[in-house]
Amino acid sequence: MTFYHYSLRFAGWLVAFMGLASAAHAQDDLLGQLEKTAEPPKREVVAATFKGTHIINSQSVENPGKGTMVFLIQHRFGTLNSGAYEFFGLDQAVLRLSFEYGLTNRLAVGVGRSSQEKTLDGFLKYRALRQTTGPGSVPVSVTLFASSALTTLKFNDPVDRTMASRVTYAYQALIARKFSPDLSIQLMPTLIHRNYVATPAEQNDVYALGGALRQKLTKRTALTADYYYLFPGNTASTFRNALGLGVDLETGGHIFQLHVTNSLGMTEKFFVPQTTGNFFKGDLYFGFCVARNFTIRPH
């Protein structure tokens, strides 16, 4: 072996090494090149501000997507402080069953039946604005909600009860922002209109402002809360503000929501103007909601 041979071998290694190095470098370059030519960031809709269409008492800004039907089973037991005789409330229960269907990605319709006052309700929910990221982004999602509820209870009072007198309307603007993947907050200016009230002291129109939040604990569990503040008036001085605290548990196609609240009713006409329980004195109704999604018309 001569020096000449060694130098040749060295040159060979060098060439091979340089080849490898440039290959490795070229790979990074290729990805870098992809990034450079990537489209400028575009507006993206912020999804899943809340897990379900309901938070606790409140509706959330979420709608079932187009062609999706949600079947909800909502349950509220009696108050926890009703004692052992009532099995701490479990002896009593009110139920609401409802179907919600997404006609489009923005518009949903729903019907429900509550055992409380044998009430039928129907609603429309429209996603007017969706929170987005990217250029020209929208900071909040706004969903407009309108519902009417019809009490089908047989009344014993001698007053002539027309059909119209059995109807109550609820109007809400649900304004929500997902601040992070974990934290979402919603504000809900609310108007409840009751066609019939028993005494002049009761208000036909009740105004309230609701607030709700969702804080995720893990990917599939979250803490929730919602609250309704009644604006001063006869209703506010007789009834209480509705407060609920809960947990969302998500499994595949179901969402389980467990909660305690001082309100027995599960539709706006009950929980906004007719809440009587004192949350901090133990007038807590334990409740749950199971939501099951069905795809009626696949995309």
Binding site: Q27, L30, L31, Q33, L34, E35, A38, E44, A47, A48, P64, G65, K66, G67, T68, G102, N105, P181, K219, R220, E250, G252, G253, N293, T295, P298, H299
Partner: peptide
Amino acid sequence: AFAVPVKEFAFKRTLMQEHFNEN
């Protein structure tokens, strides 16, 4: 080299798409 934007996957079921991205 490939780069695939994960959010662009479209599903037949809306809830699946949400779970795919979220969970």
